[in-house]
């Protein structure tokens, strides 16, 4: 099949399946994007995972654990989707460990107090959901199916975060201060999650042409901001952007300039927790090696595989 026929298929909204012919660049683009997404789910378990044992009530503990567990599950759905493109999970993990693959920079920020669990659910999951809802219509079948499943399961994640924020914003003086502090720290990194401006995003062209992405970084960012600002107002918190204001003419919020130096700094490995996150993952992976080996040997000996 030629690239022309492939493009016709894409243009008529037909999904591409693993056994279909696809341009090598399409395949590579998908591997990069899906694996980055999978790694983000997995590394994203850490900042919240650190608070499971410190959750302040039994209810909060169970909710947070279930949420972090979902992230492991979602990482797994995405690794599966990626494997259909002919790359193994082992190789994907190697790429992560050797820093050849990236994950979302947001997880390189520390979680300092309980309100951060709220901010992550509300803002980070909120931003991720905007992106994922759009990706349900992506052109690659296994990725699209994964996204549909993930969106369905994640619908409670943002709510649990917002509930924590609302509770704390209306709690004691100290709690309100923690909530505002968490919002201050997570706001800008959250809106950076959508990536560089369209004009500075060289791969957006192909991704849109192949319908891997269905909306651009700037469109998604705007949609997230428009949704989130009123939610902050409802619980009486202030978004840390003096330039933020409703633009009647555009029908959208205007917002201040993003600090791209900070963005690239964290992307390039110099965020507060880059090393810690990767080391944690490597350590767990290495410490589990003897277990995986034993299970494999057991299955072979007893012919159970």
């Amino acid at each position: 099949m030629s690239e022309k026929l492939f493009q016709e298929k894409i243009d008529s909204e037909k999904k591409i399946e693993p056994k279909d012919w696809m341009p090598e660049k399409y395949r590579q683009h998908l591997i990069r994007q899906i694996s980055q997404h999978a790694h983000s789910e997995i590394i994203g378990m850490q900042p919240e995972g650190q608070w499971i044992n410190r959750a302040p009530s039994l209810r909060a503990k169970m909710i947070l654990l279930a949420k972090v567990q979902d992230e492991a599950g979602h990482g797994l759905y995405l690794y599966s989707a990626c494997e259909t493109l002919g790359i193994s999970r082992k190789e994907l993990i190697n790429q992560l460990h050797e820093e050849r693959a990236k994950y979302s920079s947001i997880f390189n920020y520390p979680t300092l107090n309980w309100a951060d669990m709220g901010a992550i659910g509300w803002l980070v999951d909120g931003a991720a959901i905007v992106n994922q809802v759009s990706l349900q219509r992506t052109s690659y079948g296994p990725y699209s199916r994964g996204m549909i499943k993930i969106c369905k399961e994640e619908s409670f994640h943002q709510r649990q975060g917002y509930e924590i924020m609302a509770e704390m914003a209306n709690g004691t003086k100290e709690q309100k201060a923690m909530a505002q502090d968490a919002l201050n720290r997570f706001w800008w990194p959250s809106i950076m999650m959508f990536g560089p401006h369209d004009a500075d995003s060289p791969r957006t062209g192909n991704a849109m042409k192949w319908k891997i992405k269905r909306q651009t970084n700037d469109e998604l960012r705007q949609s997230f901001i428009d949704k989130t600002v009123p939610q902050a107002q409802v619980i009486g918190l202030t978004i840390p952007d003096p330039d933020l204001k409703w633009n009647e003419q555009r029908g959208h919020y205007d917002f201040g300039e993003i600090d791209w130096k900070e963005f690239w700094n964290v992307v390039n490995g110099n965020g507060p927790c880059n090393k810690e996150r990767l080391d944690h993952h490597k350590r767990a992976h290495n410490e589990g090696r003897w277990v995986r080996e034993a299970a494999k040997v057991y299955a072979e000996k007893n012919k159970l595989n």
Partner: peptide, 8 residues
């Protein structure tokens, strides 16, 4: 959580 020998 996040330290298991496999993701599963």
């Amino acid at each position: 959580c996040s330290k298991g020998p496999t993701l599963e």
